[in-house]
């Protein structure tokens, strides 16, 4: 499976995290898998778990979907387990370009964090809820859903969502002086600023 090599996305971690299998059951399945391997049979852990009756069809589907979902989320900007600077710079780019005030971004972040916590684990629902909630925050109707989309941390991990959005807010604050220039600020200003910031960051490293 594609996520097997990624720590935290492995089937053995997911089945325990989702509460389908306990530690003892997992140990038993791993032993069976090892025995099969010695006999020359390369059985997948999820098949072994199912054959042992530890996982039903519905649970199997949930595990696979969950793994795929987390893989996808890891690859969209600011996604879970993705700490490359360009991701959170992009995450900052959207609110910075749309509203440009750190306070506005923080307000949006707070609303979205609450929304994420309320409907954790159900991506599109909380994004829509984020939108709904964001319309209640004056001055941020466009920024909040855009920030939600750009950060994409809709996998039910409020702490990581909050971290990403706080980074985005901090970067927005860093980019805020651009607004002090006596010129009309466009996304082009932020794109150039983001490119320069990333290049500088890499050079410093």
């Amino acid at each position: 499976m594609p996520g097997d090599a990624v720590e935290g996305l492995r089937i053995r971690d997911l089945v325990v995290e989702l509460g389908f299998v306990d530690r003892a059951g997992l140990e038993q399945a791993l032993e069976v898998q090892e025995e099969l391997h010695e006999q020359g049979v390369n059985a997948h852990l999820i098949d072994v778990l199912q054959d042992l009756g530890l996982l039903d069809d519905d649970q199997r589907d949930q595990v696979v979907i969950n793994q795929e979902m987390r893989l996808v989320l890891a690859e969209i900007p600011g996604g879970r387990r993705d700490h490359r600077p360009e991701r959170w710079v992009t995450a900052a780019l959207v609110p910075a370009a749309l509203i440009g005030t750190p306070l506005g971004v923080l307000a949006a972040a707070a609303v979205l964090a609450i929304g994420a916590w309320l409907v954790r684990g159900q991506t599109w629902r909380w994004v829509a809820l984020g939108w709904l909630a964001a319309t209640a925050v004056p001055g941020t109707p466009a920024a909040a859903p855009a920030a939600a989309g750009a950060t994409g941390t809709a996998d039910g991990a409020p702490r990581e969502l909050a971290t990403t959005l706080l980074r985005a807010a901090a970067l927005t604050a860093a980019l805020a002086p651009v607004r002090l220039l006596p010129v009309a600020v466009t996304p082009m200003h932020y794109l150039v600023a983001a490119a320069l910031a990333l290049a500088l960051l890499r050079r410093l490293r």
Binding site: M69, V72, L73, E75, I76, P77, V94, L98, T123, W124, V127, W131, A142, P145, A146, A148, G149, A150, G152, A154
Partner: peptide, 12 residues
């Protein structure tokens, strides 16, 4: 889900 980010921005 993969396209949610740009789709939301374009919906704004």
């Amino acid at each position: 889900v993969r396209a949610a980010a740009p789709a939301l921005v374009l919906a704004a």
